[in-house]
């Protein structure tokens, strides 16, 4: 565990808490893509199956359980409790366009052709593109609530911090996982446009509105 990973994990945690708080306080999931949230639940459910096969640390297990359970709660809140506020008309990204190619790629390019390993690889690839329905939705509506942009900034920062963690681990531990690194870089690149808007607008007190 190094400082980059710890801050990255905390940023990931903060993102999820921010999203849940936004929904709970406003009793609404307006502006949030339910499709991205379904993908995140799928990401956690397929990646953390090793909860049952390996024990790494109490920290590791606790975080995994937190991510799985909160992602399920988020999907429940969006599709059941606050369904009336869900903006389905703008959440029109086709999930099969992500899940099918990512599934195919996980079968072809993985560290080891075993069920758990393929599911882990699927999860890593899927996470890298899971935010696309959310970004697509924002580009359709042309704006985002400030709390939603804080959520996205924390969520995007987490993988960027993991890249620094991988650089650190490569030099000091000889650790290198090509699949995670490439997917992590793709994931971070997808956020760059948003990061730019966040820094130039939201941090200066303006609402995040996209150029037409």
């Amino acid at each position: 565990m190094n400082i980059f990973r710890l801050i990255g994990d905390m940023s990931h945690l903060l993102a999820i808490v921010l999203l849940l708080l936004k929904m709970w306080k406003t009793r609404s999931c307006a502006g949030i893509s339910g499709k991205s949230q379904i993908l995140f639940a799928l990401v956690f459910a397929t990646r953390y199956l090793d909860l049952f096969t390996a024990f790494i640390s109490a920290y590791n297990s606790t975080m995994k359980l937190f991510f799985i359970s909160t992602s399920l709660v988020t999907v429940y809140l969006m599709y059941f409790k606050f369904r009336a506020t869900y903006d389905a008309n703008h959440d029109t990204f086709r999930l099969e366009f992500l899940v099918v190619p990512v599934g195919g790629l996980a079968f072809l390019v993985n560290h080891n052709f075993s069920p758990l390993e393929i599911l882990w690889t699927f999860s890593i690839y899927l996470e890298s593109v899971a935010i696309l329905p959310q970004l697509f939705m924002m580009s359709k509506t042309g704006e985002a609530e400030t709390i939603t942009s804080h959520y996205l900034f924390a969520l995007g920062s987490y993988r960027a911090l993991y890249i620094l963690n991988w650089v650190f681990r490569y030099y000091f531990e000889g650790f290198f996982d090509l699949i995670a690194v490439v997917a992590g870089c793709v994931q971070t690149i997808l956020y760059c446009d948003f990061f730019y808007l966040y820094i130039t607008k939201v941090l200066k007190g303006k609402k995040l509105s996209l150029p037409a």
Partner: peptide, 10 residues
Amino acid sequence: TFQIRLKDEL
């Protein structure tokens, strides 16, 4: 081999 990689990252 069937050795499972230990994944310590989240």
